[in-house]
């Protein structure tokens, strides 16, 4: 699970471009050991944050440090960072094994170590005989895994993944998310993941950072943003008239929500009332669960 070790710290980042555009306006945050999601609308400053964290862009003021090293000032700091870009970035002519060995060496690993780590990383990501074939012939899912491997091969402390499930079909997406969880839980590498898919973030991340209008508007544990509300969702099959009556008799406040019912009540005895009402009405109980907030709610009505 997520720890408290500080992996990355951004202090009062400001970025103003020559044309006067203020991309980032005094953004500060800390990334702890764990899987953190980076959310935000397109054009809200998220990509600027990413570029600064990777050392590609110098902030106008403020600084970002990874394990204490300033990324813009110190080239060597980049040896502890991995990056998985959103768009295509793999050479088509070379095999995955050769490509990964090469990338490991460019990150500073001696050749023999680079070769063995390349082979090991590919194995951990589930690429076996394929690794000796040219990358151009790989499927999308395999290419995404190679992309992730090149971010991990040099044993970074922290990897940044930009839309890691883009273009993947549902099965591939599930496999990639499992690999991301494995990266943290088994490999012990902290992850910052930028994604537009709230379902991915809810399933995979421990914490989130939300950037909007060049500012950090939310930061915290995912569990906090998806906490249970004080309402309960109930769904039964078949006719629910009898159920509604039984609930009313027990004084439960009910509103309909599509195929189901939303019941309000902070008191735990609500569950007992539900159970008894369902039995009384003879209604087949399909689903009963406390309603949780969803991350998409952060984007549904302006800034919450």
């Amino acid at each position: 699970m997520a720890g408290d070790r500080v992996i990355l710290e951004a202090e009062r980042l400001v970025k103003t471009y020559a044309n006067g555009v203020v991309a980032l306006d005094d953004v500060s945050f800390t990334i702890h050991d764990g899987i953190t999601g980076l959310l935000g609308e397109n054009g809200a400053g998220k990509s600027t944050v990413i570029k600064i964290l990777l050392g590609l862009v110098r902030p106008t003021s403020g600084r970002a440090t990874v394990l204490g090293q300033d990324v813009s000032a110190d080239l060597a700091a980049r040896a502890r960072i991995g990056y998985m870009p959103e768009h295509d970035c793999l050479p088509s002519q070379v095999s995955a094994a050769e490509f990964l060995t090469h990338m490991a060496e460019v990150s500073g690993l001696p050749p023999a170590v680079a070769r063995t780590r390349a082979a090991d990383t590919l194995r951990h990501a589930g690429l076996f005989e394929e690794r000796y074939r040219a990358i151009g012939g790989y499927s999308t899912g395999m290419k995404q895994r190679v992309k992730l491997c090149q971010a991990l091969v040099h044993d970074p402390a922290f990897v940044f993944l930009d839309e890691p499930t883009a273009g993947l079909d549902p099965v591939g997406r599930e496999e990639m998310l499992a690999l991301i969880r494995k990266t943290h839980r088994e490999f012990g590498i902290s992850v910052l993941m930028s994604s537009h898919l709230m379902a991915d973030v809810e399933r995979t991340c421990d914490r989130i950072l939300v950037v909007q209008g060049g500012r950090l508007v939310h930061a915290g544990e995912v569990g906090h943003f998806t906490r249970e509300t004080e309402t309960v969702f109930l769904e039964v099959d078949g006719d629910r008239e009898a159920l509604l009556a039984a609930l009313a008799r027990r004084g439960v406040a009910v509103t309909t929500d599509g195929a189901g019912l939303v019941l309000a009540g902070a008191d735990q005895t609500l569950y007992d009332h539900v159970r008894d009402a369902v039995v009384e009405a003879g209604a087949p109980l399909r689903r009963l669960a406390p309603r949780r907030r969803a991350l998409t709610e952060l984007f549904e009505r302006g800034a919450a």
């Binding site: 537009h196 998409t296 984007f299 549904e300």
Partner: peptide, 10 residues
């Protein structure tokens, strides 16, 4: 919805 952010998706 390729590349659409959460608000655009909503």
């Amino acid at each position: 919805l390729n590349g659409a952010d959460p608000r655009q998706r909503v």
